[in-house]
Each structure stands twice: as structure tokens, then as C-alpha cells.
Write a protein that binds this DNA or RNA. Structure first.
Lengths: 140, 140
DNA sequence: CAAACATGCAACTTATATTGTTACGAGCAA
DNA sequence: TTGCTCGTAACAATATAAGTTGCATGTTTG
């Protein structure tokens, strides 16, 4: 399966929108992300449902930020996307009564849970505003 | 995509093999893992290539451990499987020249690399022998 | 040697999740 | 009314793990 790039894409586009200021159409965003307007609406719809974006139909419409980027962390966006799986490996449950399988899975689960916790913690520490300020201004 | 359960399965089966002692056929292992002998051969072939297993054809043949489990870490098995991706999220490279995309990806990449490093470090600290000793003996 | 057993491997199918595409409906502005 | 824009359903494309079938190869046993 192709890796999930939605988080990367959404962070990218949110910072662009902050700098543009006014509403941006799915069409324009699709060109930024080298994809399709429908993909943009589908993904950004999650962020609208979570209160980070608004969308306006009709001429002059498009997408706009609903909150200042300093109040939004990478983790917020991850969760707005439905908290998709962060880890690619899974636990087999082929023989759930087997004590060996249980012990192996317990060991893996602990390590995986810790890795996930730390990744989410780091995402929670970084706001999109802070990230944006780290970028050279000419990027527009 | 279905999560990759090969690591979990291989750890499980290696501890069983250690307790059984003699060679075990793909057929028997397939029943342990509730799967197919061909899947077993395919996956275990990676561990043979890396020197952790041997396989013997013909009557009385099957799979056997090539090294004591105390000398094999979870990380060793992960690497023997070809170091499959640990993280499920990826970085979009839709517009590689865009400074914003670059900065976003850099931030994500750092956090992801750290999570991966820590997970691998933890896998490296645990041997299959140690894991096996944590399990109640009647599990056989 | 012949038969039974077991792995090796190619080729194909299935399952699952993201991503891409087409088509059409609904709302809003000029 | 016309044109722009989002909303959504439906479907195809893509990638990877997993499952399946079939047959060749090698090994043990009688």
C-alpha cells in the first residue's frame, strides 16, 4: 500500500493558506499538491468537520482557515484526519489462546505503544504557527 | 493495506521451534499460524537467508534453528525480514521545490526518524531467549 | 529403483487502504 | 440565468501483505 501522505499534505497546504490570507479553491490547492480537487475536498473535509477550516461555495468561494495556526498542533491535524495508524506493523492473532503468541504480542505491543506515544507527544508540541515561522519568508 | 504481521508471526514460531527441538515442517508451522505452508516457506526463507534457520528437504525434514535464541534479538528478525517499513505515514513530495513542503517534511521526518530509532533500539535490547523465558513453561 | 515426504519457487488471486478520476447535484454570486 | 465552487457517490488505479495452486527438486524409506 502507498504510505499515507495526508498529514504531510495538509500541513503543507495549511501554511500556504495562512500566507495567502483569503479563500483558496480546491482547484488551486490541488495544483499545489499535484493531485485532484476531489482528493482535496475529501481530505480537507475532515479538517472542516474538526473546526480547523471553513468552506464557502460559489464564485469567490473556497477554503479558509477557521483558527490561527498558533493554536493548531501537528497532532491536532493528525487527529482531525481520524488518527490514522502511525505504525505499519501489526500483531498476528492467529492462535489467540497460545501463551507464546500472547507473550510475543505483548512485548511488541509495549514497544509499539511507546513509540506511538512519543511520536504523538512530539506532534503535540509543534504548532503550525511555529513551523511556519521557521520557513524563509520568500516562500510565500 | 493489511498490517504487516510477519515479525509477530516469526517471533511466535521461533520460540515454538526452540521448545520443540527437532525439525518442524512448514505444514505444522502453518497450522500454528493458521495459514498456508507456502506463506511459511516464503517468510521463513528470509530467516534462512540471514542465517537464523536451516531447512532440510525430504522425509523427516523441515525447519530448524541455526542459532541459540539468546543470540537473536527482535531487531535481528526484523532486519532478516528485509527491514520492512515501521511507520505507516509518509512524506508527500508533490512539489519538491516548495520551501513550505520541505520544512513540513523535515519536521515530520525528524519526529518519525526518532520514533523509528527508539523502536529499533528497543527491539535490539530484547533477545528471543529472554522473551521465551518470560513465558510460563506449560506453553510448550 | 520407486514411493512418499518436504522444501523451492513461479504465478495467480484475494484483501485492504490510499489515491486518483468521473459524474452529477446543490448552493452562491455576478 | 450563467458560471463558479463545494459535496458526494461511485468507480478505477496503485501498492503491499497474504493466501492459493501447481509443479519441480531433493531426500528418506522400503
Amino acid at each position: 500500500m502507498p504510505s499515507d501522505t495526508r498529514l504531510s499534505r495538509m500541513l503543507h497546504v495549511l501554511i500556504h493558506m495562512d500566507r495567502i490570507g483569503g479563500p483558496v479553491t480546491s482547484e488551486v490547492i490541488a495544483r499545489m499538491l499535484d493531485t485532484n480537487p476531489v482528493v482535496v475536498r475529501r481530505t480537507m473535509g475532515c479538517l472542516r468537520a474538526a473546526g480547523y477550516l471553513t468552506s464557502i461555495k460559489g464564485h469567490g468561494g473556497g477554503w479558509a482557515l477557521a483558527r490561527p495556526l498558533d493554536t493548531v498542533s501537528l497532532r491536532d491535524i493528525h487527529e482531525a484526519l481520524g488518527s490514522p495508524k502511525l505504525l505499519a506493523i501489526g500483531l498476528a492473532d492467529d492462535n489467540p489462546k497460545c501463551l507464546i503468541e500472547q507473550a510475543v504480542n505483548e512485548a511488541l505491543k509495549d514497544a509499539m505503544a511507546e513509540a506511538e506515544r512519543r511520536l504523538l507527544a512530539r506532534f503535540g508540541e509543534v504548532t503550525l504557527g511555529a513551523l511556519s515561522r521557521d520557513i524563509a519568508l520568500p516562500a510565500g
